[in-house]
Amino acid sequence: MTTASIQMIRKEGEKLTTQGKGKYRSEQTKDKISAYLYISPFFIIFAIIGLYPAAFSLYLAFQKWNGLGEMTFVGLQNFSVVLNDPLFWKSVYNTIIIGLMGTAPQIIIGIILAFILNQAFLKFKNTFRAMIFMPYITSMVAVALVFGVFFSNNDTALANYMLNLFGMDSMNWKTHEWGAKIAISVMVFWRWIGYNTIIYLAGLQSIPKDLYEAARIDGANIVQQLRFITIPLLKPFIILTVFFSTVGALQLFTEPTVFLGASAFSRTEAMTVVMYLYRDAFSLQSFGTGSATAIILLVIIIIFSALNTFLTSGIGKKRKEYKA
């Protein structure tokens, strides 16, 4: 259909609608009904499995309940039980340490990889990109099991073999305070580095090539190009990945649970906040404290994602002030 004919039809339509205002009105009402109908599935499902459970969690956080018997109102007791439990704070500490070790290095290495992948001279660009992205398509369970063998408590574990090569002692990865955290951080890093790299790559491709050209003519080396062109212009993309990484890291559950297997909920070296929540609710049948933990977790997520987003958006600003 050509634009001219569409416009003609449109004019005809306008004539028709001005002729019969009643018909136009009913047409509008019909549109409104259609629109509400089309967006209703989301809201109906959200009401049942999103809003109701969230509200119920809020309610449960003030009750004592084992899932079967009567609920009893206990006020803030669940919160004080959780907040006075050393294990809860240990799980917060573990989550933050693993999150930091697993995600922070991704920003730097991801940017470097994206920077290289964006070079014009590079051959086999798509092959390299596909290889680096491949870990992302493996499930977290698969990653945890493969790295679970790599980091097993055996002297002959591949990770220990490599430590021995460098003259270091073997480590009990699954039971050592730092061993477990390092192993889990490595998994997180391995699976997500490719994802972050392609986000940065998309960001780099949006930076005009002549900027680098001009910098090169002015004698800027690669490090200077990275520092003064790439990173400032990449800022929105860095903020995005930092936000995703923060939220994701604070919800860590699958990797430590599957990595530790049978001992996942009885050991404390790598217990995360969500594991603590899960253990409360589904091993100890204490739904009240579990819900209180969920709400505390929500608060932690809001605080940390706001803080990290704020800190990352500060990167470029400082430089500007410094320049001026």
């Binding site: 999103g50 919800q251 929540l277 609710a281 969920a294």
Partner: peptide, 20 residues
Amino acid sequence: SILLTMIIPPQLGLIPQYYL
């Protein structure tokens, strides 16, 4: 409001969802 639902972490509703 649809976009805002994205910030609710899935674990918040885990227990009631299981119960439902």
